[in-house]
Write a protein that binds this DNA or RNA. Structure first.
Lengths: 168, 168
DNA sequence: TATTGTTATACTCTATAACTATA
DNA sequence: TATAGTTATAGAGTATAACAATA
């Protein structure tokens, strides 16, 4: 509405480098995931979240959607694919009969383990080879507040109906 | 084949943060570009490259493909869209009759100017608001070598026929 | 009435392979 | 023979809107 802070040269460099690095990395990773385990990046993210981040191996659709940026219909689509492949199951949530709980299966965990070594290898090579461990640490520290800032003001299409305001 | 350097916790943090930040930022930017000027991110990249990075406003298809990660057919598709919209022209290259030179039109430059302020505003807000200018500088410095490293060993699908080896 | 999730549908983007033409 | 670009085609992913069911 006021001035538009037209980005100085350094900011431009950072922006373009960020987008290019992320794009190339995602591309490399998707190729590996597809070849090693016939998974798209999003499918991997969903499995990883269920299999690694969740103690129970289960999460509700809504919580997955919040984590994976999607539209709800997109998540339904991907969850359907994963279920068809036998990597997750979907069942009514215990506490809320509207909810659907997604649970990773043994086959899902196996698939994850199949894919994981190659995945980390790609990341080590492509992303971290030119970085010291101090660099990696600095990178994480720089990006963490940005991520939090972006999560806080979500212009994501995953929230067309607007999530409940205050709660977290 | 041997050990797979399984990524320490810091590297994982950095990797996930990078992917999430880039994903959210791209999403926000795409929305802005679509609304402000009916452009996809790639179309914007192509126009920006022609209109801002190139002195003449022209580049060959191959060089554009190298810069924009795509498969050649994808680039042909996007260039076709831009041409249909009157934002670029395509003509046979002067020096190499196999080549096609893409040139941004006045309408293309106008479109670029239409979109640019909002674009930079989104980036300022989403990416740089939580960062000091020293942070931005550090980020650029961290990512530049990674980008160069990734460019050097291109697992991009843009090179199915393998580019000429040494030349650059 | 608000929220959860699904469905139907349409569209954009990307990739593969076959093809033409020039170097 | 190798490179530049196009075409045809097919598939994956995403978004929108309408819908059903529960809170």
């Amino acid at each position: 509405m006021t001035a538009d802070s037209p980005l100085d040269a350094t900011q431009l460099r950072a922006y373009f480098a960020l987008m290019e690095v992320a794009g190339l990395l995602k591309h490399a990773v998707e190729q590996q995931l597809r070849e090693a385990g016939d998974l798209s990046f999003v499918q991997f993210q969903l499995l990883a979240r269920l299999g690694l981040n969740s103690a129970t191996g289960s999460e509700r659709m809504t919580d997955l959607a919040d984590g994976v940026v999607y539209s709800r219909s997109g998540l339904t689509y991907q969850a359907g694919l994963l279920e068809k492949a036998g990597l997750v199951t979907r069942s009514p949530s215990a506490d809320d009969d509207r909810g659907v709980t997604v649970t990773i299966t043994d086959a899902g965990r196996t698939r994850l383990e199949t894919v994981l070594p190659g995945h980390t290898e790609v990341i080590s090579h492509q992303l971290f080879e030119p970085l010291t461990s101090a660099d990696a640490s600095a990178l994480a520290d720089l990006l963490a507040p940005v991520r939090d800032h972006m999560r806080a003001a979500p212009p994501r299409s995953a929230a067309p109906r607007r999530r409940r305001a205050g709660a977290e």
